[in-house]
């Protein structure tokens, strides 16, 4: 391998006239990891991927695929397979013919695994693409990509048209790719998906990179929500370090958020007569809301 990084960008910027679609993105994706690329619609995820694939040229900055410049598509694309966000197929070709075309022009295919994927995704390959639904078009592109031996898979919102059952098949395929040592770059606005399969996540908003963190760390950086019921006097939490947003949602109930180590709060609670206690980890959805504010989440 030419580089330790499957993907690397430095100051990657794309402007369309006065609109800045992507602003100074510097990012490194290690070989072998499953990397989530999160952001709401219009954040610049697809623009980034088009730049990484050399489908569009950056206004400034550079991108590399395993050390190969993204503009050198003939070499760079030997190292990757791609599933676009909105898959369009040649309407007159059948699924089998499209897989054959992709295989014979692509970076090499594991035909046994391809057959297995076709079965698992329950794909009817004899139909012309004209008759495929959105989900089926996506399945064709997914089968073509997962069946390659390319060391990097670039997937742009690949499950938007899949039903929950097929999403599970997709997650299994991502896990299998990871086990084979393939790197997966997964763009998504579905938090559950990223939460389920990714090792690290980058968050993009309005063309800017907000944060890159391992999934676990992203959660740890943020609060837990504690809900408790008590009898008698309410516990006094006013001066306790890490406790915020103390609210009383009902008679004998208390809710607050907790950041950092829970020791001091637990000590304070020990003095009160607590009858029930629930600690909830925030979902990525809530972390998202923290970054973007409510108005930015669509």
């Amino acid at each position: 391998m030419n580089s330790d990084f499957a993907l690397r960008t430095a100051g990657l910027t794309k402007r369309y006239g006065r609109l800045t679609a992507l602003d100074d993105l510097t990012l490194e994706v290690c070989a072998g990891e499953v990397f989530g690329f999160l952001g709401p619609n219009g954040a610049g995820k697809s623009t980034t991927i088009r730049l990484l694939l050399g489908l569009a040229r950056p206004t400034a900055g550079q991108a590399w695929v395993f050390g190969v410049g993204a503009a050198d598509v003939a070499r760079a694309h030997r190292l990757l397979a791609y599933v676009p966000a909105d898959v369009a197929l040649w309407p007159q070709l059948t699924g089998a013919e499209i897989l054959h075309l992709q295989a014979s022009t692509g970076p090499g295919v594991d035909y046994a695994y391809q057959a297995e994927l076709v079965e698992r995704f329950e794909l009817d390959l004899s139909k012309p693409a004209r008759t495929y639904s959105t989900g089926n078009r996506q399945k064709v592109a997914l089968v073509a990509a997962f069946a390659t031996r390319a060391p990097l898979l670039v997937l742009d919102e690949p499950t938007s048209g899949l039903d929950p059952l097929m999403e599970r098949v997709f997650r299994t395929a991502v896990a299998a790719a990871r086990d084979r040592g393939q790197t997966v770059f997964l763009s998504s606005h579905q938090l559950a998906e990223v939460e389920a399969v990714c090792d690290r996540v980058a968050i993009l908003r309005a063309g800017r990179l907000i944060q890159v963190a391992p999934i676990g760390e992203l959660r740890g950086l943020h609060r837990s929500e504690v809900t408790l019921t008590y009898t008698g006097q309410p516990p006094n939490l006013d001066t306790i370090a890490g406790v915020q947003d103390v609210r009383q949602p009902g008679e004998g109930r208390l809710r607050f958020t907790l950041t950092g180590p829970p020791g001091p709060a637990l000590t304070a609670l020990a003095d009160a007569d607590i009858t029930a206690l629930a600690v909830r980890e925030p979902s990525l959805e809530e972390i998202f809301l923290d970054y973007y504010g409510t108005e930015a989440v669509r």
Partner: peptide
């Protein structure tokens, strides 16, 4: 329709 071909090593 050209997108998938454009993403190939061509």
């Amino acid at each position: 329709q050209m997108t998938l071909l454009s993403a190939q090593p061509v």
